[in-house]
Design a binder for these strands. Structure first.
Length: 280
DNA sequence: TGCAGTGTTGCTTC
DNA sequence: CGAAGCAACACTGC
C-alpha cells in the first residue's frame, strides 16, 4: 500500500512524465464511484470547478499527492490502501478493472485513479486552506532539517508502543505498517517497546534505519506486494529487501529464527523474536 | 463455504 | 483528553 516511498515514486514519475503533466489543464472528468471525491461532495460541482484549471506543481506531503493548480487551488489525492494513479492514453478507456476516476487532460492523456477497495480520497481545496489543514502533520523524515534531535523531540513524552507512534502521522509523516516493521527490524527494536525505554543508541539506530529503509525503497520504486503500481503500471522492487512485513513463519535473514506476528490495535506487527527482544 | 485477515484514516464511544 | 473500536470496501486464503 502506498506509504511515503510509493507516494514519492508516483510524484517523481508524474513530474517528469511525457507529454508533460506540468502545465497541462483539465478538460473533462469521469467516474463510476463519485463518492471518491470528498470535497466538494457534489461531483458536478467538483467537475465544474476543476475544468479549465492547470497543473502548476506536483508534490508530496506525508502520504498525500498534491497538485497545485491555477487560480489558487490545490487538488489532494490520498491513495489509502489500494489506490494508485495511472498516466494513460485518452482512448484507452479500460486501463484495469478498478479505475474509478479519470481526469482528462488537454495533452491527450488521462490521469486515472485505480482503487480496488475504494478507500482513496480526492479533495479540491483553496491552497491556503489546505496548507492550514496540513499543519497538523508531523515532520517529513527525509527532509534535510529532520535531524536526530528533531526525531528525539518528536518521540519525547510519547507513551505507547513504538510501532504505533512511528505510524502516527501527526508525529512523523508518511510511515505505515510496512516501513515501521522494516525500520524496527533493522534497528533490532521490538515493536511494542515504549519510547521512554529506548537507549540513546537504540534511538539513533532507529532514526538511521528509518531514513535508510525509506530511501532504499524510493530507489527501488516502492513495494508492490498488493496493488501499488507506478503511474506507468509497473511494479516496485522493494520486495527484494523486505525482511519482515508479511513474512511471518519465514526465517529471519539475520539470525534464522522464525518471524512472528503480533496483534496491535486491530492490526499486525511482524518482527524477529530473537533480534528484536522486548526486554533484552 | 464462510469468515477472518488485509491496513489508512476519520468518526464514534467510553 | 486519549485510547480503542469500527466503518468505509473488495478480494485472498485458510
Amino acid at each position: 500500500m502506498p506509504e511515503l516511498p510509493e507516494v514519492e515514486t508516483t510524484v517523481r514519475f508524474l513530474r517528469k512524465a511525457r507529454p508533460p503533466i506540468l502545465g497541462a489543464g483539465f478538460v473533462d472528468l469521469w467516474s463510476d464511484f463519485k463518492k471518491i471525491v470528498k470535497k466538494p461532495k457534489n461531483f458536478r460541482q467538483f467537475k465544474k470547478e476543476i475544468q479549465g484549471k492547470k497543473i502548476l506543481k506536483i508534490r508530496r506531503r506525508a502520504k498525500n499527492i498534491i497538485f497545485e493548480l491555477s487560480s489558487g487551488y490545490s487538488l489532494l489525492i490520498h491513495q489509502k490502501l489500494t489506490g494508485h494513479l495511472l498516466y494513460a492514453k485518452w482512448e484507452k478507456d479500460r486501463v484495469n478493472d478498478y479505475i474509478h476516476l479519470k481526469f482528462f487532460l488537454n495533452n491527450g492523456k488521462i490521469l486515472a485513479l485505480s482503487d480496488l477497495r475504494k478507500f482513496a480520497k480526492v479533495e479540491l481545496w483553496k491552497s491556503p486552506d489546505l496548507e492550514k489543514e496540513l499543519r497538523s502533520l508531523g515532520p517529513e523524515p527525509l527532509e534535510k532539517n529532520f535531524i536526530f534531535k528533531k526525531f528525539k523531540e518528536a518521540l519525547k513524552d510519547r507513551r505507547g508502543k513504538i510501532k504505533q507512534i512511528l505510524m502516527n502521522q501527526e508525529i512523523i509523516a508518511g510511515i505505515g505498517n510496512i516501513y515501521s516493521d522494516e525500520a524496527l527490524w533493522r534497528a533490532k527494536i521490538h515493536p511494542f517497546k515504549e519510547p521512554s525505554k529506548l537507549s540513546e543508541a537504540e534511538l539513533k539506530k532507529l532514526y538511521q534505519s528509518l531514513k535508510e529503509v525509506l530511501k532504499k525503497s524510493i530507489k527501488l520504486h516502492g513495494e508492490s506486494i498488493s496493488d501499488y503500481r507506478d503511474p506507468s503500471g509497473s511494479r516496485g522492487n522493494f520486495d527484494r529487501i523486505r525482511m519482515v512485513y508479511r513474512r511471518e513463519g519465514e526465517k529471519c535473514s539475520r539470525c534464522g529464527r522464525k518471524i512472528k506476528r503480533l496483534k496491535m490495535a486491530g492490526r499486525s506487527a511482524r518482527f524477529c523474536p530473537l533480534c528484536q527482544k522486548q526486554n533484552p
